[in-house]
């Protein structure tokens, strides 16, 4: 499905508008524009057409529409990185995304590794984990990291993807600009598996029987 985005890239980069919210706003605007009606059912002229009429130019409406569509087309390709991308997509197409701003989300796993004013975290999206390099202040909100007993915080990170990071010995990583906690992690409730317990007791019984038989024969 094609997603049209009309938010300014600078707004997203600065963290003013969360990427997903921006996309949704773009959807609403596009719906209204293509159907030619606003939410109240009133006829609405495309923004560019209005602008051109206001300035008194004599462009035909079709040309104005082409211009608008071209701008939207351009915006679509430049801002499409604002959508969360999977680790597989990023790793397999690292050359395409190299140096670009990408949005990636996943669970924080393992350790939050402090390195001077920065930290390394690793985000796992279910397929792979990617290393995220971020300022220590951005990592303050991370409370849970994924392990056997813990579900880690689920974060959305926006930053530049480095296919072969010059700063970090050629690693494929993301230098984060903003992070957002989508879901908070938690301690996992792990109950004793009764089936395993019963099997262990049964096998212990069998083992004792064998040892008993051996001792009788001996």
């Amino acid at each position: 499905m094609i997603k049209f985005v009309t938010v300014q890239r600078s707004e997203v980069n600065q963290g003013v508008i969360p990427a997903q919210a921006g996309i949704q706003r773009g959807y609403d605007r596009m719906d209204a524009r293509f159907h030619g009606h606003d939410k109240n059912g009133r006829r609405e002229l495309p923004e560019a057409e209005l602008l051109l009429k206001f300035r008194g130019h004599r462009f035909k409406p079709q040309i104005a529409q082409i211009v608008v569509l071209s701008i939207l087309y351009f915006l679509f390709f430049t801002l499409s990185y604002a959508q969360p991308l999977s680790s597989t997509e990023l790793i397999n197409n690292a050359k395409t995304y190299d140096g670009k701003i990408v949005v990636y989300e996943g669970e924080v796993i393992g350790d939050v590794m402090r390195r001077a004013d920065y930290v390394w975290i690793n985000l796992h999206d279910g397929k792979n984990a990617l290393g995220i390099w971020l300022h220590k202040d951005l990592a303050k909100g991370i409370l849970f990291t994924g392990s056997y007993k813990t579900k880690g915080d689920w974060l959305e990170v926006q930053g530049s993807l480095q296919r072969a990071c010059k700063q970090h010995g050629g690693d494929l990583d993301i230098h984060a600009q903003t992070i957002k906690k989508i879901r908070s992690g938690r301690l996992l409730q792990i109950n004793l598996n009764l089936a395993k317990r019963n099997l262990a007791i049964f096998l212990l019984g069998v083992l004792c029987l064998i040892l008993f038989c051996q001792s009788i024969k001996a």
Binding site: I109, N122, H124, G131, W133
Partner: peptide, 12 residues
């Protein structure tokens, strides 16, 4: 111990 192999450590 981690799925990223040695990439997990980001360490020379």
């Amino acid at each position: 111990p981690q799925s990223q192999n040695m990439l997990y450590y980001h360490s020379l």
